[in-house]
Amino acid sequence: MKKILIRYRAFLVVFIMILIFTVLYRKLGLKALSISANSLKEMLFIVPPVFILLGLLDVWVPRETIVKYMGEGSGLKGILLSILIGSAAAGPLYGAFPIAAVFMKKGVKFMNILIFIGAWSTTKIPMFIFEISSLGSKFAITRLLIDIPGIIIIAYILSKLVSKKEVDEIYRKANEIDK
């Protein structure tokens, strides 16, 4: 019980703050709570497939296969695969982090992890189709054409800036996500 309280302390603090806020500003507070309830519902709808796929990936796909296609020395093939997998995903960015952790466990190169995160964040295929219909193809295609090299450049610079020690620490953490 105490352990649970400690793990959820940030949540409890924010929740109590919102309750106080609601007492002071009733209308805004209630609106905030109802939006939160909606987001929770949405999260519970989106999240199950993400985590089930993560579990299946972890159990079924052998490390050697992933290392071969996306690990050190996977070159252009690894980059393209990272973009493709990230773009094919559905769901908000926070769903990408646990999947990235499983990729780390399986030996995907750090730069490819960052490319995957970048692709998940902004070049999702279903979203692209939606963007064309709302903002026009010129807007959507221009953005996509800037985004693809942008994601790769950001991943490259980041992977150079983050020290080997830090990368090791991130990979070590990834091994603990399902412990």
Partner: peptide, 19 residues
């Protein structure tokens, strides 16, 4: 396990989004 592991952070995020 992976879901339960980030649930506390996820809930905070959801509250902040509402606000």
């Amino acid at each position: 396990k992976a879901f339960e592991n980030i649930l506390p952070e996820l809930l905070v995020v959801i509250l902040l989004i509402g606000l």
